[in-house]
Amino acid sequence: MQVKMLIDKKYKSMEIHVCNDEKNASVIQMVKDIEGFVNIRLPGTDERGEKVMLNPQEIIRFYAQNQKVMAQDTKGVYSVQKKLYELEEILDTMDLFRISKSEIINLRKVRSLDINMTGTIKVILIDGTETYTSRRNVTRLKKKLGLK
């Protein structure tokens, strides 16, 4: 299967086209998968208690706090009704990574990792948020990123 990127002024916003010589089950499944990936929304509640629909692609991290699961993006923090393991299942097409028992990060929103002299491994996210992970998770992350 070829994946092409077409850059042209005629496109005013991003479009995804699935092309084939016939409409069959795999084409229909592909369209469904892409729609699910692009359009999936997650219900949440913002800090003022208002219901919002979150775009998971924009979420920097999900974490457990005071028996609640929180989702953080660059604009704020929201509570979500799902458990962390449920989020991992629902959003399995995204680049999520479990960095601890209580936290999942979006790998597309990670700036870098750092280790200090005491062996504390810091994960620095794109909004400057700093969080921590273990040595074992660094090894898992390496594998996830395709490094040996």
Binding site: L107, R108, V110, R111, S112, L113, D114, I115, G119, I121, I126, R135, V138, T139, L141, K142, L145, G146, L147
Partner: peptide, 24 residues
């Protein structure tokens, strides 16, 4: 064990950061 862990992890993090920088 701790010193070996430190050096191994530091090397792993350097490799991960290269990939993250490319992705970003």
């Amino acid at each position: 064990i701790s010193v070996i862990e430190y050096h191994t992890t530091k090397r792993d993090i350097a490799e991960i950061n290269v990939i993250l920088a490319e992705n970003n």
